[in-house]
Simulated assay, not measured.
Amino acid sequence: MTQQFHEADYECALRLGLDWDEIRVLEELSLLDFHVLTTLSPHFIRIDIQIDHAQLDLALRRVVDHKRSQEIQQRLLVHGAPRHLMSRLYGWIPQQYRSQRRMLHLDEEFPNSGRPPNPTLTEEETILTHWDHLADLDLAERYLETALAAKVSVRQVCRALSLREEREREALGATASVRLHGVASGAHSQSISSMTNRSR
């Protein structure tokens, strides 16, 4: 404020509620005088706090969302979420995954490249049924709630989904192969027919 007075920038002082007589007196004070005045400021400066209720509500919602996200992350870990899933959902690096598991005192199952056993056919069917029924949930909650409903680990949910994707890719590949074979066969037959017609 001292610099603003010496530069004749009075807008800040006026916004604070000072009148022109007070501004002129303050303008004449030295830096030492201002220092003394600052020590006395609690006696004449009152801070008026105004709440922006819309922004406060938004901030509170963010706090609630953050807390809920933290809870879901911990529950995912407790129910066996693999590292690649936490990386995909929350951008975790391996060190963060390990430190969070240590903090929760979880056993190191399937370390690094370990691969879980495939779910049984019954488990897989149950997992996929619940997964499809929970399509409206947030992705992280969908993994968690599917595991809880199917009574399996989150890791098994990931494995069941991976197996379904593999089968779908194989089916698409087989369909494409059949179509290409059909096109090739049709072209070959057409070529033979054309050659026959020309020989006539």
Score class of each variant (00 low, 15 high):
93 I>P: 05
80 G>C: 09
78 V>F: 09
64 V>M: 09
67 K>T: 12
52 D>T: 01
101 R>D: 01
98 R>P: 04
78 V>E: 15
99 S>I: 00
39 T>K: 09
61 R>C: 05
38 T>W: 10
39 T>C: 09
35 H>D: 15
67 K>V: 13
52 D>W: 01
92 W>N: 10
93 I>N: 08
73 Q>K: 12
76 L>G: 03
42 P>Y: 12
76 L>Q: 01
84 H>I: 00
88 R>E: 15
64 V>A: 14
39 T>V: 10
65 D>Y: 00
28 E>I: 00
63 V>Y: 11
44 F>R: 03
76 L>Y: 04
91 G>H: 06
27 E>N: 13
84 H>Q: 05
81 A>M: 03
105 H>C: 03
95 Q>L: 10
42 P>N: 11
48 D>Q: 04
40 L>F: 07
77 L>P: 11
51 I>L: 13
100 Q>S: 08
106 L>W: 09
44 F>D: 14
83 R>H: 10
95 Q>V: 03
56 L>H: 08
24 R>L: 07
65 D>Q: 12
73 Q>C: 06
71 E>K: 03
44 F>K: 05
32 L>M: 07
85 L>Y: 05
105 H>T: 10
83 R>L: 05
62 R>I: 01
75 R>F: 00
64 V>I: 03
87 S>D: 13
47 I>P: 02
47 I>Y: 07
85 L>F: 05
105 H>M: 12
91 G>N: 04
87 S>C: 02
95 Q>N: 09
97 Y>C: 06
34 F>S: 06
45 I>P: 13
80 G>M: 05
75 R>Y: 00
29 L>D: 04
62 R>V: 00
52 D>G: 08
34 F>R: 06
56 L>G: 07
59 A>K: 06
90 Y>T: 04
58 L>V: 03
